[in-house]
Design a protein around this nucleic acid. Sequence first.
DNA 1: CTGAAAGCGCTAACAC
DNA 2: GTGTTAGCGCTTTCAG
Lengths: 339, 339
Amino acid sequence: MLNQHPRRVTRADVAREAGTSVAVVSYVINNGPRPVAEATRQRVLDAIKKTGYRPNGIARALASGTTRTYGLIIPNIANPFLSSMAHSLQQEAFEHGQVLLLGDAGDNRQRELELINNLLHRQVDGLLYTSVDRHPYIELIQASGTPFVMLDRVDPALNVSAIRVDERAAAFQATRHLTEHGYRDIAIICGPREMLNTQDRISGWREALQTARLPVKEEWIFSTTYTREGGYQAACRMLEGTLPRALFATNELQALGCLRALSERGIKVPEEVALVCFNGTVESEFNVPSLTHVRQPVKAMAKAAIEMLKNWNGTPELREFSFDLLIGESCGCCPTLIK
Amino acid sequence: MLNQHPRRVTRADVAREAGTSVAVVSYVINNGPRPVAEATRQRVLDAIKKTGYRPNGIARALASGTTRTYGLIIPNIANPFLSSMAHSLQQEAFEHGQVLLLGDAGDNRQRELELINNLLHRQVDGLLYTSVDRHPYIELIQASGTPFVMLDRVDPALNVSAIRVDERAAAFQATRHLTEHGYRDIAIICGPREMLNTQDRISGWREALQTARLPVKEEWIFSTTYTREGGYQAACRMLEGTLPRALFATNELQALGCLRALSERGIKVPEEVALVCFNGTVESEFNVPSLTHVRQPVKAMAKAAIEMLKNWNGTPELREFSFDLLIGESCGCCPTLIK
DNA sequence: CTGAAAGCGCTAACAC
DNA sequence: GTGTTAGCGCTTTCAG
């Protein structure tokens, strides 16, 4: 009972001021569920203005059983792809009167668990979730009965709602773009091997090479973290051996880290090493050289994710989105910039 | 009364199971405010485990008057500087048991207002706020009595709590670094002129030029939005006239957009045009060329901001932080990369 | 050390 | 069309 705010104006004050009952005040504020005479309605609105009344969202949430809040659990908001996704999700959610609780796990599995529990306690109306690793805490969420949508590939056996693009196909297409350039030695910089999305992306790469009848060399798989630093280090390792002619980086940060390492050795992209990457953002477009990249339809996916939470009925739904391969300068397609 | 979740286990169930009163269950969960005998405590804990009880955060918030939630209002989470700030804020807040409600205004003033109202209704324990423009909705927040900290420069007359770096000094130092290189023609790409932080940054630039006894040419102020696109367009405008020898971009996105425009014309950085920028992130470090930039101590600032909310007592406090000028390749200091 | 009970502010049946 | 009132699940005072 330690109400920190001095003395809040409550609905009772408004009712008193307007000379009506508290119920009517509610009806006015919520436009229902019962009709209100226009005259009364005006009196209430005036009273609200006069008293400076602000409905208490918490009390409303307790009484109505809905918090108008979705939780967003992601590995790290500082990742440009995730922040662009978070941006779109928030915009879309807000259109539906919902706000997002930000659960940034800081790439830490333990923290992720704490956040999920925390947001669940807060009675979020739904959860949007990208896990830091391949072992998402699905059961925990399911046990709570909270609507939730994975923003990531998950084990199909788990039978949960998810939105995603076919990452294997996207990786295939990205790599095929390189093979169509005629490049034969094509390495991959990928994420931790135990992660499903890493596996998908490697599969796509592998298949594209096989389709082009190119050898798949295990030593050309450079596994690292999904960070700039990771891409940088993977490239450094790569530079110790024979240089591939082309490179598929499985996220944008890795590609940028890799570019940095290459440029420090004076290796030109795309002239000496061509590059395509996965999950590019506007950052890829503006980079010099601009990156040829797989782009997910973030806005449409956000819209779908919010809709799925909204129309939740307990039966898992999988929505797969098409992706685009945006051509930049890094693959060698475009006329190179004057240097 | 449309409780969406089937039938929640409540404290009463736990009390019944443990053979105690509901009050004791509270005492156990909250470790207070009254002591509980160890034996009873165990019975309660067992009952909690057995029933799978989860405290309802909303009910707790209503009863206790604290939501354990802070609101974060920012122009756009997709801005790398802001997303790194959001990341640090969330990490720090979580250490204090608080979670952040994300209010991404989408660079829209109207939306910003809606978000503030929305989060205020939700009884956030505090608000962290960077406005999209120079007219923050201060009175609105103050009227609510909610603790709040501006994450931006505001009109000193407003008398609000804020954390910031001295942007004028930072801009001065960044520009001085260019004058010390011996560059004489130094342009500035800045944000909308009506914004205070733009004005501060312009002032710093101006003073640095004056200190170096260099002429300040009004036509070398290129005002645009704080985006990549803005930086790109400003650079294009600049390219229509005489090219300056050096350039101060007042945020990282503008610098990147500008770099793009320059490279499309085959203009080399730093050989032909040197560049420094404001509010760089790790992105500046990895860029090719790496950007010499002013770096704010984001983590320390986040820590301070959360502390200020926590220890809020109504009296405005201004905390100013020192900044770093991180030297990269874009200013011409470092040995240029082999190209 | 424990229990009973009065709220917190609002929603929405149910009465009139 | 409007008023009354029983909850929502929890915190915390006050008695014992």
